[in-house]
Design a protein around this nucleic acid. Sequence first.
RNA 1: GGUCCCAUCGUCUAGUGGCCUAGGACAUCAGGUUCUCACCCUGGAAACACGGGUUCGAUUCCCGUUGGGACCA
Length: 474
Amino acid sequence: MNVVTRYAPSPTGALHIGGARTALFNWAYARHHGGRFLLRVEDTDRERSTRESEEAVLEAMRWLGLDWDQAPGFDAIPRQSERGARYQECVDQLLASGAAYRCSCTTEEVEAMRETAKREGHNPGYNGHCRKKNLPAGTSQPFCVRLKIPADGVTHWEDAIAGASGQEVDQLDDFIIARTDGTPIYHLAVVVDDHDMGITLVIRGREHMTSTPRQLLLYRALGFEPPQFAHAPLLVDAKGKKLSKREDAASVQYYRDRGFTPESLLNFIARLGWAHGDVEIVDAENFVELFELKDVGISPSQVHEDKLLWISQQYLKSLPMDRLQSHLQPFIDAVANGNVEFDNTLTHLLDLLRERSKTLVEMAELTRFYLHDDIEWEPKAAQKFLKKPILEPLRELRVALAKLDSWNESTLSTPFESITASHEIKLGKLAQPVRVAIVGSSASPGIFETLEILGQQRTLTRMDAAIRYIEALD
RNA sequence: GGUCCCAUCGUCUAGUGGCCUAGGACAUCAGGUUCUCACCCUGGAAACACGGGUUCGAUUCCCGUUGGGACCA
């Protein structure tokens, strides 16, 4: 059987990492098995669904590299809001076959039933009041449509992640499949869609597990063959609660803006609930190859950023330069206040910055001394290193550096060596003040490399400023 | 309230009825390297929630307790 999986977001906000992981698992499974990965937009909530959100979700998917296939028989990504007629057709079919019935009970009446059941110690739910009334199609009373829960309904399934699962049929009540206004309920839409799209495996979040029995009943009532189900453990926050869409801090967009590369975010979420021996670094291609449902765990995972930062650095260190540059572009442009071209010098700098940055934001920030001339010295660093005792060595160094005809790492080391020798100081004593003078900070790549990158003229200018500053100290 | 689910270091996890003195990674601590920062290297601390069973033997299987969660209302 050809594998077809899907991810079905509701466009009511950004794609958050729980959703991204669900998408990733479905995508990887399909790619692993040479099947298709489809997308469907669940925009039945007209109040909260927006085209902006839909585009944001798709954009996040593209950014992560999760490409989707065209659903056979559909000329675009299926949208539930455009499939009302098909759902109606299925509701009618269920009505006609006697698997469903019209119910005219009011909200108050249903609420009363629930209270009674509770008081009597039964499961609260609809008591089947209208089941035998056979309300006709043309009835003048407002009605909703309910599914008849069969006494022998099968609600058990073998979950590919959670194992044997199910619920006793007598725990279920005749639930609504179409509202009074005729709109279908979520479960009905999902079942019809997954069937029409030919889905063979549904990997979704554990929060959907309790609704699976109902959906199974719907499959049977409609005469559809159900897909395989796999419920992935929840992603939870630091408090152990399900990651909510409302939390901006959990969105893919948020991580992107923080300067994480798509490669690292993907690696991070892949390892949430999934493990393959000791594998920690796994790129998309690798993941596709390794991903199997049996390696997905069953207990919830907390999202902890520390590891993401480490993963991020691993990718920053190993990404091909052109990829790194294209990821970095918006961040470095922001630092430069304009469009930055990556020349050889800047590229060299970037290489030195790879292992000193955990995010693209950090990396971009570390290029500031090169991109701008009006750098500021960190007050603490200036206070600590730009002091009187170093004034003379700095002056001598400035003179020596000005005389250099050739400006590179190796030629630069000579003046440093002779001056530290004549003053009997260690290299660090001289390098740190110079570093502060030219970078503004007490941390940077190697001093000679940094000087080479900055260039002779800019170095001398900055040194002059530092020397004047020290001279002006009381 | 009802139904269902989960439980290994702080976090992500490996693992199995005896190979476990429970492995890896992140974070953390201590050293090393070093012109700073970082990278890197070495080492340390750190967990099978609890109580009963089953068994020659349980972290691994069963039951219960506790804790946490999801869904429905």
